[in-house]
């Protein structure tokens, strides 16, 4: 992906804190820092893969960007189709509604993300009705086209979601996301609930659609192999914070953050000559309500030194738009994955 491509979405210092209350008067005694000072950008037409363990705040980040949940603080700049740059976090509800046409989401669970009381036609046509872009017969025609695009037979558009398999349901979800010709699609673990064989089909569909409709993806996943395949750039998240961002090949082959290295070592490699060397992380993922001082990762990091528990490393560009949040980003030579 060209670096010259303009930036479509820029997240600056985004936070989402959930308050914890105690006592008779429900005093706020602390916060769960689900998303903590996140900086990110996505270029027009590229796919940014966002990886991290379950519960690290990926989904919350995705939803905060779309303001499906209200972020606590920070800015999210989006360049609209008309070329205007808007801070989404500051918009009124009405302004957001028009923006929702350009930014859509694909959900994780194909069984939970479709209203069981609506037909496929109603589900896919819903955005068209909400934004009043089509009516009557037009909706039906548009839905028919959309279903064909995602590889579903429009003959079954009067059926209910439970009559479809997981992969088919996810295609319905994709058709719904495409209905309004969006520019940015946030795909929240779109294949993690699917069988492996079906995963591949859906990933391929998403790749084809990206070319066909010039889409930009924020692709959230906990499965590195899936992300590698589709992403131009990768962002690694750990307990609400971004640890490393960079070009996919760079991050995979030469990770600069110990956490990324640990993640990479968990990827199964189908090569009899490569001896797998798994880095087993000690301890548990820290509680985001009470995250460790200094670098969040230091209690589990095998390279941790004294400074790591005292000072939080900033997310710094170590060259070529490769950002790492580690005090020793330049010092280690960490193992990546040479080949998939």
């Amino acid at each position: 992906m060209d670096k010259q491509n303009e930036i479509l979405l820029e997240v600056k210092n985004l936070k989402k804190y959930f308050p914890i209350t105690r006592g008779v008067f429900r005093r706020v005694v602390g916060y769960v820092k689900a998303v903590d000072r996140v900086d990110l950008f996505i270029r027009q037409g590229e796919t940014l893969g966002l990886v991290g363990e379950s519960g690290c705040g990926k989904t919350t980040l995705g939803r905060s960007i779309l303001r499906l949940i209200e972020p606590t603080d920070g800015e999210v700049w989006f360049k609209t189709g008309k070329g205007k740059k808007l801070d989404i976090t500051k918009l009124e509800d009405r302004e957001i509604k028009s923006l929702r046409r350009e930014m859509r989401m694909i959900f994780q669970d194909p069984y939970a993300s479709l209203n069981p009381r609506m037909t496929v036609m109603d589900i896919v046509g819903e955005p068209l009705i909400i934004h009043k872009v089509a009516q009557g017969k037009e909706i039906e025609d548009r839905v028919r086209t959309l279903l064909k695009i995602v590889g579903l037979n429009p003959r079954y558009m009067r059926r209910y979601p439970h009559e479809f398999s997981g992969g088919q349901r996810q295609r319905i979800g994709i058709a719904r996301a495409l209905a309004l010709n969006p520019r940015l699609v946030i795909a929240d673990e779109p294949v993690s609930a699917l069988d492996v064989s079906v995963q591949a089909q859906v990933i391929n569909l998403l790749e084809n659609l990206q070319v066909q409709f010039n889409l930009t993806y924020l692709f959230i996943a906990h499965d590195l192999s899936v992300v590698y395949h589709i992403s131009n750039r990768i962002a690694v998240m750990y307990v609400g914070k971004i640890m490393e961002v960079g070009q996919a090949e760079e991050v995979y082959q030469g990770p600069r953050h110990p956490y990324t290295e640990a993640l990479m070592s968990a990827v199964p490699v189908i090569d009899p000559d490569v001896k797998p060397e798994r880095i087993l992380l000690q301890g548990d993922v820290p509680n985001p309500a009470n995250s460790p001082s200094g670098c969040t990762f230091h209690p589990r990091c095998r390279y941790a030194k004294k400074i790591c528990s005292q000072e939080e490393p900033p997310l710094e560009d170590i060259g070529d738009e490769h950002y790492v949040a580690c005090h020793f980003a330049d010092d280690f030579s960490l193992k990546g994955i040479r080949q998939f």
């Binding site: 499906l68 957001i96 929702r100 989401m105 993300s113 209203n115 069981p116 909400i130 934004h131």
Partner: peptide, 9 residues
């Protein structure tokens, strides 16, 4: 699916 409705505006 409720979130998806909200997301669709």
């Amino acid at each position: 699916f409720v979130l998806s409705a909200k997301e669709a505006g």
